[in-house]
C-alpha cells in the first residue's frame, strides 16, 4: 500500500530529507516532514532494499549533498579552506548552504555570498581576514569567467595624439577588478598555491592593493602601491588621464608620483591588457 503523495508534495518532502542540516533520522521526524509522511508510514513512500532500510536509502542522498557543496566551495575558495582547516571549512559550508542554498543551475554561483557570510558566521576564526580572503577568491573566479573583451592595442594607443592624452579616458576590460585590503590576503593566496607550508603570512593588519585582470585567458594579480591604486581607481571610475594625474600629489599629503613612476605604471597596465578602449570627448578610439 502506497501513501498517496502527489509529485510536488513528494519533492518537497524528499528535498527536506536531502538538505536537512542534521542526519536523515532528524529530517524524518522534523514537524513538516512528519506532517507529510509520518515516520511509521515511511515504507509506504520509500521501499526497503535487500540490504537497506528506507531511512538508510534516503541517507545516501542526504550524505552526498554536503560533500557536493563542500567540493564546489573548496574549488572556489582554496585559500579560505586552507586557513580554516578541513573541519572549520566543513562546518562553514554546512552553515552557509543553510542560509544561501544554491538557486542557480550552476554550482559556480554557489559561493557568491561567501564573503558577506564569513564576516558573521558563528564561531569562525578571524572573520575580517576570512572576509577579505573570500573577497579576493570570489573576484578571481569572477575575472576568470568574465566576458572576453579585446584589450587596447598599440595601434589604438599610437592613434592618440600626445596633446590629447590629458583629456583621454580609459575604459577597463570586463575581466578586471581593482581591490584594496587591510590584510595581506594576496600573499596568503599565493602561499597556498605554492604549498609553502612554512611561509603562510600571518593574519595581521597590513594594507595591500591589487589589480586583478585576465590576459590570454590567464588571471593575473598585480600588487600595487597605494598611489598607483588610487590613480588607477580614478581612471577606471572615469577621470581623464589629466585629472587622475593632477589628483595624485594632493592625496593625504603623500609624495607625488615621479614621472618615471607614472610612465612605468601606465606601461604595465597597458601591456597587461587592463584597458579595452580610450575615449576622447566621449568618442571611442
Amino acid at each position: 500500500m502506497a501513501l498517496d503523495l502527489p509529485l510536488e508534495r513528494m519533492q518537497r518532502w524528499f528535498q527536506g530529507m536531502v538538505v536537512h542540516p542534521e542526519g536523515c533520522d532528524a529530517a524524518l521526524v522534523a514537524p513538516e516532514a512528519e506532517q507529510e509522511v509520518p515516520l511509521e508510514r515511511l515504507r509506504e513512500v520509500i521501499l526497503p532494499s535487500r540490504t537497506l532500510t528506507p531511512a538508510e536509502r534516503l541517507e545516501i542522498y542526504h550524505g552526498m549533498y554536503p560533500l557536493r557543496m563542500q567540493e564546489a566551495l573548496a574549488s572556489d575558495y582554496p585559500a579560505l579552506e586552507h586557513f580554516l582547516g578541513d573541519d572549520g571549512f566543513r562546518e562553514l559550508v554546512m552553515q552557509y548552504v543553510q542560509e544561501f542554498p544554491s538557486r542557480n543551475y550552476s554550482l559556480n554561483r554557489l559561493g557568491d555570498h561567501v564573503p558577506e557570510f564569513v564576516r558573521s558566521a558563528p564561531g569562525i576564526k578571524r572573520p575580517e581576514f576570512c572576509h577579505e580572503l573570500a573577497r579576493l577568491e570570489l573576484a578571481i573566479s569572477q575575472v576568470f569567467d568574465a566576458p572576453e573583451v579585446p584589450a587596447l592595442t598599440a595601434e589604438q594607443i599610437a592613434a592618440v595624439a600626445p596633446e590629447d592624452w590629458e583629456r583621454a579616458r580609459l575604459r577597463p576590460i570586463a575581466a578586471f577588478r581593482l581591490l584594496s585590503f587591510r590584510y595581506p590576503v594576496n600573499a596568503y593566496v599565493q602561499s597556498v598555491r605554492d604549498e609553502d607550508h612554512a611561509g603562510h603570512p600571518k593574519a595581521r593588519l597590513k594594507d595591500t592593493w591589487l589589480a586583478l585582470y585576465r590576459r590570454s585567458y590567464s588571471v593575473y594579480r598585480l600588487e600595487l602601491s597605494r598611489s598607483a591604486h588610487d590613480l588607477l581607481r580614478d581612471l577606471v571610475e572615469g577621470a581623464t588621464l589629466g585629472e587622475a594625474v593632477a589628483a595624485a600629489p594632493r592625496r593625504d599629503g603623500r609624495r607625488a608620483p615621479q614621472e618615471e613612476e607614472l610612465f612605468r605604471w601606465f606601461r604595465d597596465w597597458v601591456s597587461g591588457g587592463i584597458f579595452a578602449s580610450v575615449e576622447l570627448d566621449g568618442e571611442r578610439r
Binding site: 510536488e8 519533492q11 518537497r12 528535498q15 536531502v18 549533498y65 557536493r68 557543496m69 542554498p101
Partner: peptide
C-alpha cells in the same frame, strides 16, 4: 530541486502515471 533550490543531484522520480 524544488522551491527554487537546486540540490545539484539527480534525484529519483516515482514511476507513476502522474
Amino acid at each position: 530541486g524544488i522551491l527554487g533550490r537546486n540540490t545539484h543531484d539527480l534525484l529519483p522520480m516515482p514511476y507513476t502515471e502522474e
